[in-house]
């Protein structure tokens, strides 16, 4: 099936001359949840803004459901929802009215019952007649989400939906994302929290300095993460891995002071018992043993660090 969002060689240079996107390509499949991770200034918001029509691209092409976002903007914007990173709302509007306004802007007939349902779902119904300026930050974030849901988008962009949101609300937000996905909505969210990406995404993309460094299934990434390293410190240094231990595919550590064994925690047998027995058989004297697990965080830091 053709991807619902296709980004091809997208570039953006701002008027200041700064190049925020350097040829980004990304396909987003219908119905998936894609998390975009990246440090501040990576270009996440810029990319989303181009897809939504807020920023004009310098080069490349974006299609949504097969329509070009520039030429065929009506078709694409009808199905795209956006929850922006900044909490921008009209101070003197009420919650209900601002949500109804969003629905109208997207060409939908008024539907108070639907808006009520959305506001209840986001625990905002008791605030429906409150002026927006009287809301707390977390409530404003939810109002922005309600606005985006009011016109029933097929593709929803959430730009840092959980920034400045407390733990309970963050959990609720994740549940909401899950419910939306169940109705077939494609969701793209940006975040700085790796746990968040781990928790809810199907695929994870890493972007830095205007370039996509990696896009992978979370499952595949997790498998990489599932690997562990066992490091055995030796009392006496070795020249090479002893013949008798070849089956374990060990790596010799720095200065021959240690042996490193990689194993899969998900596997039925880790092979640790056999390895230690074999080492004793070889007459190796062990000084210390330690294990280490690479996390998504490590991969992220490594990727972003390499790019620096």
């Amino acid at each position: 099936m053709a991807p619902i969002v296709r980004i091809e060689n997208l570039t953006k240079s701002y008027a200041s001359g700064f190049q925020a996107l350097k040829g980004v390509s990304l396909d987003i499949e219908e119905g998936e949840i894609l998390a975009l991770l990246g440090p501040n200034g990576a270009g996440k918001t810029t990319m989303i803004s181009i897809v939504c029509g807020i920023v004009t691209p310098s080069g490349g092409r974006v299609t949504v459901a097969g329509h070009d976002v520039v030429k065929d903007f009506r078709r694409t914007r009808e199905i795209i929802g956006l929850v922006p990173q900044e909490l921008t709302l009209d101070a003197f509007e009420t919650v209900f009215n601002t949500v109804a306004f969003s629905r109208g802007l997207h060409g939908r007939k008024p539907d108070p019952a639907l808006i009520e349902k959305i506001l209840r779902e986001l625990s905002l119904w008791d605030k429906k007649d409150t002026m927006l300026r009287q809301l707390s930050g977390g409530m404003r974030r939810r109002v922005l989400i309600a606005k985006a849901l009011s016109y029933e988008p097929k593709v929803l962009f959430l730009d840092e939906p959980t920034a400045g949101v407390d733990v309970t609300l963050r959990k609720e937000m994740w549940q909401l994302v899950e419910r939306l996905r169940a109705t077939g909505v494609t969701i793209i969210l940006t975040t700085h929290y790796i746990e968040e990406a781990e928790e809810i995404a199907d695929r994870i993309g890493v972007i830095n300095k205007g370039e996509i460094l990696l896009v992978e299934d979370k499952a595949a990434l997790m498998q990489k993460l599932g690997r562990k390293q066992l490091t055995v410190e030796l009392a006496e240094p070795l020249e090479a891995v002893p013949e008798g231990l070849a089956a374990f595919r060990l790596r010799l550590g720095e200065g021959g002071q240690s042996l490193v064994y990689e194993y899969d925690t998900a596997g039925e047998r880790t092979g640790i018992t056999a390895l230690l027995a074999a080492m004793a058989e070889q007459g190796l004297r062990l000084k210390d043993v330690s294990t280490e697990q690479s996390s998504l965080e490590d991969i992220f830091v490594e990727l972003v660090g390499d790019a620096k």
Binding site: T88, L89, D90, K147
Partner: peptide
């Protein structure tokens, strides 16, 4: 205020 984002991202000419 920044609320223009909504106008710019709506399917309107």
């Amino acid at each position: 205020t920044g609320t223009i984002y909504e106008i710019l991202s709506a399917p309107i000419s």
